[in-house]
Computed example of a mutant assay.
Amino acid sequence: MPTVEVADLKDGDFLLDVREDDEWQAGHAEGALHVPISEFAARYGEFTQAVPQDGRIHVICRSGGRSAQVAMYLVQQGIDAVNVDGGMQVWAAAGRPVVDAKGEPGSVL
Rank of each mutant, 00 (worst) to 15 (best):
S67R: 02
R19N: 00
L109A: 02
V59H: 01
G55R: 15
S63Y: 01
A71N: 12
H34E: 00
A93Q: 10
W24A: 02
A94S: 13
V84C: 07
Q49M: 09
T3Q: 13
S67P: 14
Q49H: 02
L109E: 10
K10F: 03
V18L: 06
A81V: 11
K10R: 13
V98Q: 05
F14G: 00
D22Q: 13
P52T: 11
V18N: 08
A68Y: 02
V99I: 15
A81E: 13
Y44A: 08
A101Q: 11
M72I: 05
T3M: 13
W91F: 06
F40K: 06
A94Y: 00
G106N: 05
G78H: 06
K10C: 00
V51P: 01
E23F: 01
S67W: 12
Y44L: 15
P36H: 02
P52L: 07
D21K: 14
P97Y: 07
A29K: 03
D80S: 11
V59M: 13
Q53I: 09
P105F: 13
R19S: 01
A29Q: 04
V82T: 01
V6G: 05
G87Y: 09
V18I: 00
A71T: 07
M72K: 15
I60L: 09
V84A: 02
S63I: 10
T48P: 11
E5F: 14
E39Y: 14
A42H: 03
R62W: 00
L109H: 06
D100R: 07
D54K: 14
S107L: 13
E23N: 01
E20F: 01
Q89K: 08
V84F: 04
V90M: 05
G95C: 10
L74H: 10
H58M: 01
R56S: 07
A7S: 10
V99E: 07
R96F: 05
D80H: 09
F40V: 00
Q53W: 15
I60V: 14
A81Y: 10
C61N: 02
K102S: 02
A81T: 04
V4T: 13
A71M: 10
H58A: 05
D54V: 12
D85G: 14
V75Y: 13
D11H: 08
G64S: 09
R62D: 01
Y44W: 06
E20V: 08
C61R: 08
F40M: 11
N83R: 04
A94N: 11
S63Q: 09
T3W: 14
D8V: 07
N83K: 11
D13C: 04
F14V: 00
A50Y: 09
H34Q: 00
G64P: 15
D85V: 04
P36E: 05
G64C: 09
C61Y: 05
H28Y: 03
I79Y: 10
A92D: 05
Y44D: 09
V82I: 11
L15P: 00
D54C: 08
A7F: 03
Q69T: 09
A50P: 01
F47P: 08
A26F: 00
A93I: 08
R19T: 06
A94L: 15
A32R: 03
M88S: 06
G103Y: 11
T48R: 15
H34G: 06
M88I: 01
C61K: 05
L9H: 08
G87W: 12
L16M: 07
E23T: 01
N83S: 11
S107T: 14
W91K: 03
D13H: 03
A93N: 04
W24P: 05
A101K: 07
D100K: 09
D85N: 11
Q89V: 14
V98H: 06
V99H: 07
A92I: 03
